[in-house]
Measured scan of single mutants.
Amino acid sequence: MQRVNMIMAESPGLITICLLGYLLSAECTVFLDHENANKILNRPKRYNSGKLEEFVQGNLERECMEEKCSFEEAREVFENTERTTEFWKQYVDGDQCESNPCLNGGSCKDDINSYECWCPFGFEGKNCELDVTCNIKNGRCEQFCKNSADNKVVCSCTEGYRLAENQKSCEPAVPFPCGRVSVSQTSKLTRAETVFPDVDYVNSTEAETILDNITQSTQSFNDFTRVVGGEDAKPGQFPWQVVLNGKVDAFCGGSIVNEKWIVTAAHCVETGVKITVVAGEHNIEETEHTEQKRNVIRIIPHHNYNAAINKYNHDIALLELDEPLVLNSYVTPICIADKEYTNIFLKFGSGYVSGWGRVFHKGRSALVLQYLRVPLVDRATCLRSTKFTIYNNMFCAGFHEGGRDSCQGDSGGPHVTEVEGTSFLTGIISWGEECAMKGKYGIYTKVSRYVNWIKEKTKLT
């Protein structure tokens, strides 16, 4: 034993070699072989497995989906700052455009905790909710729209109204504003409101030439003092309507412009014939205590009207009353817009006519005020429907199939267009061939041609 100890002390290297040989010859039971080890760690190889990531292109799944990435790591994937920024906006807080917040056709661009709407022409605001041009839906104005110097929408209202708090709607500024039905039992019968379409306001006024200088022999019209197929109006439903009495009662109609003036057809009036105007009328054979009678003290036909040349060209006249009318729910003026808007309103496509005229061709006159909704007829169809001249200051309205029309005794009465609950004068009943005849239409004086003249002559002093 002493000898062994001496050998170990003198030859430590020998001992180490012996131990190493023993270990190498022993069977290893701690580690699995290569094949079995792979069965336990069965993990798919990654895209760049075996390579240094710093030297390969980034992978979106590896960089940002398996674990949260930084902007720089995302930049490695896209290799483009702009594309990385677009991805980053949604990656950080989701897609803010998912709810489609942009209105009126706006395009949404996502941002971090926010979004941006790219608005089409005519709109602005956070969600493109603000109209900035009158060309689109009248700028959301209830009545009139004008573009300011910086191309912003400025709404306005006709006389007797003021802008509401929203700067879009119009509200009454006087007790009985024009064009409004205020009798409670008839307010439910107000005709369907007309909503502004998209309009090209630059070209809204037709490029028409008034044929002022045409000389033409007097034409022989049949029954051209021209509501057939209409309905009984309720008291106060058309408070701007008046009836004219002269040699015979209810020979023509008219509309209240203001307390002192009536507008009617020029062919209705004769110099030297006494005319009485009755406002607030409903049943011409009954006294309903809503009527107001006034005498006409002055007749002003349009300066281009000449019955000797043509009885229905420039067929418009103004009547001055001896005493002002007292405005109330049964006696209310009709609204008159400017030339541009009167023309736009007419193009809405349908209007209402009213009167006490004959209820059928050569038949009896109506006792109760009649009204009828009539569609506008395109000019080409209008011209083809008659052998008589249709001037540019006239328009056609009615039904091709016949059966409904204005008729004798309705002449001078109103053709009105309702705009968001307020009625505007767009025409004056003038003439036609018979009444409600198939293929024939009622012919009306186009008020847009005469609004400046009306307003100039009827100013209240």
Rank of each mutant, 00 (worst) to 15 (best):
Q2Y: 12
V4T: 11
M8Y: 13
P12S: 13
C18M: 10
L20E: 03
L20W: 09
G21D: 03
C28G: 12
T29M: 14
F31T: 15
F31S: 15
H34Q: 09
N36W: 06
A37S: 15
K39A: 12
K39Y: 05
I40R: 14
I40E: 02
P44S: 10
P44D: 14
R46T: 14
G50D: 14
K51Q: 15
K51F: 04
K51L: 05
L52F: 14
E53P: 08
E54N: 07
E54G: 15
Q57K: 09
Q57I: 06
G58Y: 05
L60E: 05
S70C: 04
F71V: 15
F71W: 10
E73S: 15
R75G: 15
E76I: 15
V77I: 07
E79G: 15
N80R: 11
T81W: 04
E82V: 12
E82A: 15
T85G: 13
W88I: 15
Q90A: 11
V92F: 09
D93V: 05
G94W: 05
D95T: 06
D95L: 05
D95M: 04
Q96G: 08
N100L: 06
G106C: 02
S107Y: 06
S107K: 09
C108F: 00
K109G: 03
I112F: 11
N113S: 06
Y115V: 02
Y115M: 02
C117A: 01
W118M: 15
P120W: 02
E124T: 07
G125T: 01
G125Y: 00
K126M: 08
E129G: 04
L130R: 08
T133A: 07
I136T: 04
N138Q: 03
R140I: 04
Q143W: 00
F144I: 03
N147K: 08
A149K: 11
D150K: 09
K152M: 09
K152F: 08
V153W: 04
V153T: 07
V154T: 09
C155S: 00
E159H: 06
G160M: 02
Y161F: 09
Y161I: 00
K168C: 04
C170L: 02
E171C: 04
G179A: 01
R180K: 12
V181H: 09
V183P: 09
S184F: 13
Q185Y: 12
K188V: 08
L189S: 11
T190R: 08
E193S: 12
T194R: 11
F196C: 05
F196I: 11
P197S: 12
P197N: 05
P197F: 11
D198N: 12
Y201T: 12
Y201N: 13
Y201D: 10
V202D: 08
V202H: 07
N203Q: 09
S204K: 13
T209R: 09
T209H: 12
L211Q: 13
I214C: 10
T215D: 07
T218N: 13
Q219T: 10
F221V: 07
G229L: 09
K234H: 13
W240M: 01
G246Q: 05
G246T: 07
G246W: 05
D249L: 08
F251M: 07
F251Q: 08
C252L: 01
G253E: 03
I256C: 00
N258S: 06
K260G: 03
A265L: 02
A266D: 02
C268T: 00
C268Q: 01
E270F: 08
T276Q: 08
V278Q: 04
A279S: 03
G280N: 02
E286T: 08
T287Q: 12
T287F: 09
H289L: 07
K293N: 06
V296T: 03
I299Q: 09
I300Y: 06
H303W: 08
N304E: 11
Y305G: 02
A307C: 05
A308V: 10
A317P: 01
L318R: 00
L319A: 05
L319P: 00
D322F: 02
P324A: 13
V326I: 12
L327P: 04
L327A: 04
N328G: 08
V331K: 00
P333C: 02
I336E: 00
A337E: 01
A337W: 00
E340G: 08
T342S: 14
T342G: 04
I344M: 12
L346M: 06
F348Y: 13
S350G: 09
G351F: 00
V353E: 01
K362C: 03
S365R: 14
L367Y: 10
V368L: 10
Y371R: 14
L372V: 14
R373E: 07
V374S: 04
P375C: 04
L376G: 02
A380T: 12
T381Q: 13
L383Q: 14
S385K: 12
T386M: 14
I390H: 12
Y391A: 10
N393E: 06
N393H: 11
F395N: 01
F395S: 02
C396P: 02
G398V: 04
E401G: 11
D405F: 13
S406N: 14
Q408M: 12
Q408T: 15
G409D: 05
D410F: 10
V419A: 05
E420H: 07
G421L: 04
T422C: 06
S423M: 13
T426Q: 01
G427Q: 01
W431T: 09
C435S: 04
C435F: 03
A436K: 15
M437F: 14
K438A: 07
K440S: 10
V447H: 00
Y450N: 02
N452I: 04
W453H: 01
